[in-house]
Design a protein around this nucleic acid. Structure first.
Length: 458
RNA sequence: GUGGUUGUAGCUCAGCUGGUUAGAGCGCUAGAUUGUGGUUCUAGAGGUCGCCGGUUCGAAACCGGUCUUCCACCCCA
C-alpha cells in the first residue's frame, strides 16, 4: 500500500455496530412519523445551484458544497471572467449543481413542482443526508442526516401542537428523558424589537439575543451596541434578561410588554394557544419552556420557533429544531402556502444516547447462533439445520471452513455469539447436536429433529 | 472564513535541551491444546515517526508550508 487511504474531513465511516444503533433511532423516528400520518418522500442528493443559493443567507451560501461541471468546463468561461480571478463570478459558470444543504428548501421545491398531485394539507417526512462545508466540531459534521417532518397547506396552530407531541413521542420512545422543548415565536421577537425601537434591526437584535446563555447579558448588550442598536432601545429590552417564572407568568409579562404592537400580541396569543392546548393534552416526558432568546438564525421562520435541548447534564448543542414559515414556497412561485416543520439531528441524538448508555443491549448483535464446521458431511447437515432456523428468523451461519475448533470458537467469541452448535462425527452417528451457551459455557445434547424448537434468547 | 490545537505499530500512548539499531500496553498470527472460546505461558509479524520542503555532520524532535484531529468564533442539526 503506497499511501494510507482517508476520507474527507467531517465525514465518517459507520461500522456494523454503529449502523445498527443508527437504524434503531431511524426506526423509532420513522414509526412515530407514520403514526402521526406523515408520508415519506425523497429528493436528490444534489439540486440545481439556483434552487439552493440565496435561500440560507450569505453565511449559508458559503457552506453549500458546489459540484464542478463535467467536461471541459474552464473552456466555456469567457476570458474577462476567467482573468478576473473572482471566485464569485467564476463559480456560477463552472458549477451548476450543488449538494443538498437541508431538507426544507428541497421540500419547498418539491411541493411547488408537484402541487397538482398533492392533497393539502400535505404532511411529509424525509430522512436523508445533507452536506455543509462547515468546520467540524463535536456533533458537527460535513455530512450528516436530518429527519424532517413538515406540514404544508394548513394555518392551524394545531399543527404546532402536534409537532411538539411528535417530539415528545419520539424522545420518550428513545428513552431520552429530560429533554426540553424550547418555544418562541418570530412575531414576539418582531414585537419586542418594535416596542423598544429597534424595529429595523430585527435580525441583529435576535441574533445577539440568541447568545444570552453563552455570552451573558453584558455580551449581548455589547453586541447589540456594535450592530448599531441604540442604547435607549437596549435599555428598554431589560425586562427580557430577567424574564423568569413559569411559562404562564412569562407569557403574562410578554403580553403586557407587547400589548401595543399588533404582531407582538398575535405572537403571544399563538404561543399561549400552543402552551394551553399542550397542557390540556399532556406530554409524556418532555419539558416545555418559553425562551424568548430563541432566534434560530433562519430567515424564513414567521411564527412558532422550536428547539430541542439535550438533557441538562449533557454537553451538546440542540438536537432538533423547527418552526413555522408562512411563505416558504413563495420563493419558488407558489404563494400563500404556509408550512410548519421540525427536524431531528440524528447524529447528535446518537452521541447523546451513546453518552447516556440508552441503546438497548444486544441491539448490535449480528449473529445469534454459529454452527461449527467439522468437515464436509457435517457442514451439509449444519446447512440444512441453518436453513430451517433462518425461516424462523434466527440469525445464524455455518463456519465456512473445517478449521481447528479452537479457532472457530474464538471467532464465535469475538462475534459475541450467544450460542454455538457443535455437530461432529459422533453427533452425526447419533442424530444429535451439541448446543453450547457461550456465556455460561454449558452444553446440552439435543436430537437434530428438534432444531426448529430452539429458543434463542440473546 | 478567523484563531488555537493534534498527528509515532491495527488501537491507546511513551520517546529527555536534536545523537546513531524506534518503545510499551492492548490487539493480531502461530504454538502449548488433532472436539471446546474467554484465563495463562512461549514465540513471531507489524512503523517511508501525516505529507512536502528547509536548517544541521546528524531531525520523530527545530523552522516553513500543506493535509488531518479536536476546540473556540462565525453559523448551525
Amino acid at each position: 500500500m503506497a499511501r494510507k487511504p482517508s476520507i474527507p474531513k467531517g465525514t465518517r465511516d459507520f461500522s456494523p455496530s454503529e449502523v445498527s444503533k443508527r437504524n434503531y433511532i431511524f426506526d423509532i423516528v420513522r414509526k412515530h412519523f407514520r403514526t402521526f400520518g406523515f408520508q415519506p418522500i425523497e429528493t436528490p442528493a444534489f439540486e440545481n445551484s439556483e434552487t439552493l443559493l440565496g435561500k440560507y443567507g450569505d453565511e449559508g451560501d458559503r457552506l453549500i458544497f458546489r459540484i464542478l461541471n463535467s467536461g471541459d468546463f474552464i473552456d466555456k468561461v469567457d476570458d474577462v471572467t476567467y482573468s478576473s480571478k473572482n471566485s464569485a463570478s467564476i463559480a456560477p459558470k463552472i458549477s451548476e449543481k450543488a449538494l443538498r444543504y437541508d431538507l426544507t428548501v428541497p421540500f419547498a421545491r418539491y411541493v411547488v413542482m408537484h402541487q397538482n398531485e398533492i392533497d393539502f394539507p400535505f404532511k411529509r417526512y424525509q430522512i436523508q443526508p445533507v452536506w455543509r462545508a462547515d468546520r467540524p466540531q463535536r456533533g458537527r459534521f460535513r455530512e450528516f442526516y436530518q429527519c424532517d417532518a413538515d406540514v404544508v397547506g394548513s394555518n392551524s396552530l394545531l399543527q404546532e401542537v402536534e409537532l411538539v407531541q411528535l417530539y415528545d413521542a419520539v424522545f420518550t420512545s428513545l428513552g431520552l428523558h429530560g429533554i426540553t422543548i424550547k418555544l418562541n415565536n418570530r412575531k414576539i421577537l418582531a414585537g419586542i424589537a418594535e416596542v423598544i425601537g429597534a424595529g429595523n434591526h430585527l435580525v441583529p437584535f435576535t441574533v445577539a439575543l440568541d447568545k444570552l446563555d453563552k455570552i451573558g447579558e453584558g455580551g449581548v448588550k455589547n453586541e447589540m451596541l456594535s450592530k448599531g442598536i441604540p442604547e435607549a432601545a437596549i435599555e428598554k429590552a431589560n425586562p427580557l434578561f430577567s424574564l423568569s417564572g413559569s411559562n404562564s407568568e412569562q407569557l403574562e409579562v410578554l403580553r403586557n410588554m407587547l400589548s401595543v404592537t399588533e404582531a407582538g400580541s398575535k405572537g403571544v396569543d399563538e404561543l399561549g394557544f400552543i402552551l394551553n392546548t399542550l397542557e390540556e393534552i399532556g406530554l409524556q416526558s418532555a419539558q416545555l419552556a418559553i425562551d424568548v432568546t430563541l432566534a434560530r438564525g433562519l430567515d424564513y421562520y414567521t411564527g412558532a420557533i422550536f428547539e430541542v435541548a439535550a438533557p441538562e447534564h449533557v454537553q451538546m448543542g440542540s438536537i432538533g429544531g423547527g418552526g413555522r414559515y408562512d411563505d416558504l414556497t413563495g420563493i419558488f412561485g407558489l404563494q400563500n402556502v404556509s408550512g410548519v416543520g421540525i427536524s431531528f439531528g440524528l447524529d447528535r441524538i446518537y452521541l447523546v444516547m451513546e453518552e447516556l448508555g440508552l441503546f438497548p443491549s444486544g441491539i448490535d448483535r449480528s449473529l445469534e447462533l454459529l454452527f461449527l464446521n467439522f468437515g464436509e458431511k457435517e457442514a451439509l447437515t449444519a446447512f440444512k439445520m441453518a436453513t430451517k432456523l433462518r425461516k424462523s428468523g434466527v440469525l445464524c451461519e455455518v463456519y465456512p471452513e473445517a478449521a481447528k475448533i479452537q479457532k472457530q470458537l474464538k471467532y464465535a467469541d469475538k462475534r459475541q455469539v450467544p450460542y454455538v452448535i457443535l455437530l461432529g462425527e459422533k453427533e452425526m452417528e447419533e442424530g444429535t447436536f451439541v448446543l453450547k451457551d457461550m456465556r455460561t459455557g454449558q452444553q446440552e445434547i439435543k436430537p437434530q429433529k428438534e432444531v426448529g424448537n430452539l429458543s434463542i434468547k440473546s
